[in-house]
Design a protein around this nucleic acid. Sequence first.
DNA 1: TTTATAATCAAACTCAGATTAGATTATTTT
DNA 2: AAAATAATCTAATCTGAGTTTGATTATAAA
Lengths: 222, 222
Amino acid sequence: MARKPADQSVNREDIIVAAADVLYRNGYEATTMKDIAAEVNLTAASLYHHFRNKDTLLLAVLEGGLEVVIEQIEPVANSNKTNVEKLTEMIRLHIYYVTQNTAVGAAMVFEIRPLLNFRVPPRNGNQFGGSDYDEFLDRRDRFFKRRAYFEELFVRVIEDGVKKGEFRQVDPKIFTKTMVGANNWVAVWYKEGGRLSGDQVARMIAENFVWSLQPYRSASLP
Amino acid sequence: MARKPADQSVNREDIIVAAADVLYRNGYEATTMKDIAAEVNLTAASLYHHFRNKDTLLLAVLEGGLEVVIEQIEPVANSNKTNVEKLTEMIRLHIYYVTQNTAVGAAMVFEIRPLLNFRVPPRNGNQFGGSDYDEFLDRRDRFFKRRAYFEELFVRVIEDGVKKGEFRQVDPKIFTKTMVGANNWVAVWYKEGGRLSGDQVARMIAENFVWSLQPYRSASLP
DNA sequence: TTTATAATCAAACTCAGATTAGATTATTTT
DNA sequence: AAAATAATCTAATCTGAGTTTGATTATAAA
């Protein structure tokens, strides 16, 4: 019954990568299904065989990026390193991912809103009415929860660090918001082949944020 | 000849404010001229009496916001305070503005790209062909230069601070990018009436960034 | 009060982009 | 090979949004 997809045919993953790329260049609203399709040598209509509609495709892009980052950061957060080590590593990983995947990274920065203001009401007689619509909303909510979880990972490390005196007294939530904002923003200005490598940028910023949390320090870096 | 505009009629400024507001809620592409017009009780067509087109209107919104912030930060940058004082004050002003004008602030974060990828080619037979098009491009470039200048104000203070030993050795450009990113990002998450006031948030983040630049410090804050 | 022009509107134009319908081709399973 | 379904395409539909046109109203200057 079920058939394995042909090897040379385009699959979901290919389309997601292509979409991220076009999204990066043009932004959601300015990106046409045709643009995305062209990137994988298909027609716009063919995309609808893989994704229900444009919004669902965008969501898939964002979900993918977020999961990868969480996958990398989570084990560090749950390790038994010191909070200083944890935080340094987590920031570094986050930023490095962003520099290596500016397309997805920028999408995560810029394309949240089309998701928030999901306009399309369930039109009767439209394929997208009823349960499909609900399904989308559910998936979107799940995405936002994952996003909150991602931030929560940072908050916990900072809270714990503050409690144990590794970090000075800051507001962990505000600090995290600020930091995550700065880190995501890297996708906007980082250009490959510039003065600094992604790794260097990641290390510099990580060091800086962690440094800013130290309650006491001597004149030279550790 | 020239006629003074009527007092109760809608003016450019009103429209800009309304546009910022709608933009904040919906994003550029999802914002229709009709939406903006409705906000000031006009029809979409009427907007074209005040602005040549949608892109020009967006540009006006961004220009306005940027100029206000520069106006506030520039005198501080040029004052004869210490670099520590300057930077603290500059960040504080920037963030405070953002919290008080989330609409414009978020627009500055999210709506740069529509400007970058200015699609509309000069269509012949269109009112927007020829010199009007060039005029727009010029104005857009001027905006980006102002934007660069805004960042430059921060870079200078940091460079000077590093040179004079007030700050530790950081890369001033990377530091500024990171910081400005974080500050702009405040527009995305700050909600009026939340746990902290705009002023509190501004102070906390300012203190933190400046703190992170100190080459040496004792256990307690100044 | 006349006149010029600013401000506004209603209606029409244009066009692009998302989506659908239906047919066609490709590939795997039986 | 036959059947089933996956992958794709062409062509058409449908809608919404930016913009234009031309008229109408309001207001300030003469």
